[in-house]
Amino acid sequence: MFSFPFMQHAFVAGTLIAIMSGLIGPFIVARRMSFLAHTLSEIGFAGASFALFMSWSPLVGMLLFSVVASMSVGELGMKEQRSESLISAVSAVAIGLGIAFLSLSNKNATAATGILFGSIFSINQTDVWEVVVLATLVILVTLMMFRPLRHFAFDYTTASFSLKNIQLIEVLFLGLMATTVAVSAQIVGSLLIFILMILPASSAMRWGRTVWQIIGLAIMFSVLGVWLALVLSYWLDLPVSFFIAIIEAGVYFISLIKRK
């Protein structure tokens, strides 16, 4: 199984993406931005279609669109009451744009499926390097901002008084989130972004009692889920995203049943 380069690529990229999502996920869940993460992935879908239309790498398009969108959403003020309607409107526009660019680019349905549901087995050496660089960057920046980010995400009320540069932290956090969304979409696809960023973190919150425990568990859930899914997908010839979704949702349901 590991003698195939595509399998090696999938394992390297998948593991890094799982670690990155597991690290950033708990902050997103704690700050209650899961919905925004999902919208960013839809914006990423528009970006990836745009990249196809322009004959760029889909990752470039996704990064461009989701990072720019996350910053402008931050500017619009997500604390406002209307933010949910605003996000719905933005996601409608994003999906519409995505379909338009796909149709303009004259690509077949495989391209669309790849963007929406992920295509981990078709990534090449260059893609792996892109993932390595971006994931390392996200992980390093997150660790460097760990203290302010932890306060920001887990207790915003007091953080807004205690952190002097909270706007900067918010913007940086949105940037980290957008990058993670764009990179994770490479393997789970933009429609299923929840399963690596949100589900392992939500499960971990049911078990962990310190921020580090929550992050450790989230990384463990997502890494093990990705590995198991890759192996199952290899043997059973069904999409990886399907297995990741089933595994992560399964872990989450088990965590829900656990008595609080």
Binding site: L143, M144, R147, P148, H151, F154, D155, T158
Partner: peptide, 10 residues
């Protein structure tokens, strides 16, 4: 949580 300054994660 309010130890929120600096680079050291622990």
């Amino acid at each position: 949580l309010t130890f929120d300054q600096g680079l050291r994660p622990w």
